[in-house]
Write a protein that binds this DNA or RNA. Structure first.
Length: 424
RNA sequence: GGAGAGGUGGCCGAGUGGCUUAAGGCGCACGCUUGGAAAGCGUGUUUAUGAGAAAUCGUAACGGGGGUUCGAAUCCCUUUCUCUCCGCCA
C-alpha cells in the first residue's frame, strides 16, 4: 500500500509508474484518492474540534460538581448533548471516508523502479543474464514425470489417492534428494549470513493482511474454517510478519532470515500441459530468504540476493537465466523483481524457480514496520524477499538435465547430503 | 473439552469514575560531580494523526470491538490472546 503523503506529493511520478504497469484509469483513481483524503482530513479536523470542546466542558462539569454548584453543572450538561450528537455523526462520516480511502489504496499497485521495462506480458521481460551449458541429452531422454516413474522416486498416483492432484509422494532416493536440496539451500543461506528460522505453517488473518494476501486473495490459500487460519502459500508471510508493528533501531539493519517450509497453493483454474508433473503443485517445498533493510541500502541488498541465488545455481551446474520483469508481469506489491528460470532440457522450456523482489515501503506500510532514523523520526523500512530456491522445479530440471542412459547423476555439491551419486 | 486467573508505556509494576498519558522502579539519553570510573544528583525519555516555518497546540490510543456516563485504564457486554489446574495427546 502506498502512503498518502507519497501520493499527495508525487502524483506525476506515480502516474508515470502506473503507466509502465498498464494500470487503467490511473489518473482518475489517484484524483479520487486525493479528493477523499482532503475530505477525510477536514472531517477529522472538525471532529477534533468538537471533541476538544466537549472535553473542555466535561472538565468544567467535574469542577462544578466538586464545588457543589449542581445547577450550573446541569446547564452545561445540556450543551454537551448537542456536541455528542455531532461528534457521533462526524465519527461515522470519518470512518466511512477512511474505509473508502483504504479500498482505493488497496487498488493501487506499487510504483515500479525506473529499471522496470515497459511491457504487457512475460514476452516483454528483459533477459539480463544467462549462464550454464544446456546439456545434449541422449536419444530417448525423458521428461521428469517419466523419469520419476521409471526410477520410482515420485508417485503422483499415490498422491492422488490420499489427497488429490498436485500432492505428490516422494519415495526412496527421490525423498532423500528433496531433503538434500533443502539442507544444501539452508546451509548456503546460513553461510551468506541469513539467520535460519522455523515458522508456523498456518497464519492468522492479521498476518495475511500484513503482507497483502488478504483481504482479496483468500481464494488462493487453503483456509481452516473452524479456527480461521490459512495455510501459508510462502514462508514470506510468517517471516515478514515477525516485524509487523515493530519499531526498529537503525543499528538493527540488515535483518536477514531464511526459512524452509512447505507451501500450499490452491492454484484454482490452472490446468493443462504446463502443469504436468512437478511444474505446478498444490503443495511444494521452498527455502525462502527475507530481508528488512534501510531504504538507502535496499537495492544493494537486492543485488546481493540475486548474486547469492546465482552462486547456488552455478554450484549445481544448471543452465539458467535471469529476467527483469516488465511492468505488465511485475507483481502487485513489487517495485523491482528478478526471476530466475531454469532450462528444462527434456521439456524444452524455461521453468521459473526463483523470484527476488524489492517491495520498498509497500509492505512495510501495511505492516507498520518502521525504524528510528538518524534524525530520531520513525520511517518505513524496506522489505525484500526471494526464493533460494523452490524445490519441485529445481528437482525437475535436475532430473532432466542430469539424466544419462544409465541413470540420473547427482550434482557433486549434493552428494555429501544425499549419500549417493546416482539414481538408477 | 472443563474450571479459574490475567492482558497497562522499551521492560517491571501501581492504579475501581474527573486532580491519570498514566505513580514508582529499571533501562536509555544529556548534563553536573570526579584525576578517571562507579556511585550520587539533576533534566529528559510512547505512538499515530491534524494545524504550524518552528516553538508548540488539538485529537486519539491502557489486547480488539461495542455500550453506560457530561466524563471510562477504572462500570457493563462481546471477542481474542496468555497463564494455571484437570482431561486428551506426539
Amino acid at each position: 500500500m502506498l502512503t498518502l503523503a507519497f501520493i499527495r506529493e508525487n502524483k506525476d511520478a506515480i502516474l508515470k509508474g502506473l503507466a509502465i504497469r498498464n494500470f487503467a484509469n490511473a489518473e482518475k483513481t489517484i484524483d479520487k484518492v486525493i479528493e477523499k483524503d482532503i475530505l477525510r482530513r477536514s472531517t477529522q479536523a472538525e471532529l477534533d474540534e468538537t471533541l476538544a470542546e466537549s472535553n473542555k466542558l466535561s472538565k468544567e462539569i467535574g469542577k462544578l460538581f466538586k464545588s457543589g454548584e449542581v445547577q450550573k453543572a446541569n446547564l452545561i450538561k445540556e450543551k454537551t448533548g448537542q456536541l455528542k450528537e455531532r461528534s457521533k455523526d462526524l465519527t461515522e462520516k470519518l470512518s466511512i471516508h477512511e474505509s473508502e480511502l483504504n479500498e482505493l489504496l488497496y487498488l493501487i499497485p506499487n510504483i515500479p523502479n525506473p529499471l522496470v521495462p515497459k511491457g504487457n506480458s512475460e514476452e516483454d521481460n528483459e533477459t539480463i543474464f544467462e549462464e550454464g551449458d544446456i546439456p545434449k541429452l541422449h536419444d530417448g531422454a525423458l521428461p521428469h514425470w517419466e523419469l520419476a516413474k521409471k526410477y520410482d522416486i515420485i508417485d503422483f498416483e499415490l498422491g492422488n489417492k490420499i489427497t488429490g492432484a498436485g500432492f505428490p509422494v516422494y519415495k526412496g532416493k527421490g525423498a532423500k534428494l528433496q531433503r538434500a536440496l533443502i539442507a544444501y539451500f539452508l546451509d548456503k543461506n546460513s553461510e551468506a549470513g541469513y539467520n535460519e528460522v522455523q515458522v508456523p505453517l498456518l497464519i492468522n488473518e492479521a498476518s495475511g493482511i500484513g503482507t497483502g494476501q488478504l483481504p482479496d486473495k483468500e481464494g488462493q490459500m487453503y483456509h481452516c474454517g473452524i479456527d480461521n487460519l490459512y495455510l501459508i502459500p510462502t514462508a514470506e508471510i510468517p517471516v515478514t510478519n515477525f516485524y509487523r508493528d515493530v519499531l526498529l533501531k537503525e543499528s538493527d539493519f540488515p535483518i536477514c532470515n531464511t526459512a524452509y517450509t512447505p507451501c500450499f497453493r490452491r492454484e484454482a483454474g490452472s490446468y493443462g500441459a504446463h502443469v504436468r508433473g512437478l511444474n505446478r503443485l498444490h503443495q511444494f517445498d521452498k527455502v525462502e530468504i527475507v530481508r528488512i533493510e534501510h531504504p538507502d541500502r535496499s537495492y544493494e541488498a537486492l543485488d546481493s540476493m540475486v548474486d547469492h541465488v546465482k552462486g547456488i545455481l552455478q554450484e549445481l551446474k544448471l543452465p539458467y537465466r535471469i529476467l527483469r520483469l516488465c511492468g505488465g508481469d511485475l507483481g502487485f506489491t513489487s517495485a523491482l523483481t528478478y526471476d530466475f528460470e531454469l532450462f528444462s532440457t527434456a521439456q524444452d522450456r524455461w521453468l521459473e524457480i526463483s523470484s527476488v523482489s524489492n517491495f520498498e515501503t509497500f509492505q512495510a506500510n501495511r505492516l507498520k514496520l518502521r525504524f528510528k532514523n538518524a534524525a530520531g523520526k520513525s520511517q518505513l523500512a524496506h522489505t525484500l524477499n526471494g526464493s533460494s530456491l523452490a524445490l519441485p522445479r529445481v528437482l525437475a530440471g535436475l532430473l532432466e538435465n542430469y539424466q544419462t542412459e544409465d541413470g540420473i547423476n547427482i550434482p557433486e555439491v549434493l552428494q555429501k547430503y544425499t549419500g549417493f551419486d546416482m539414481i538408477d
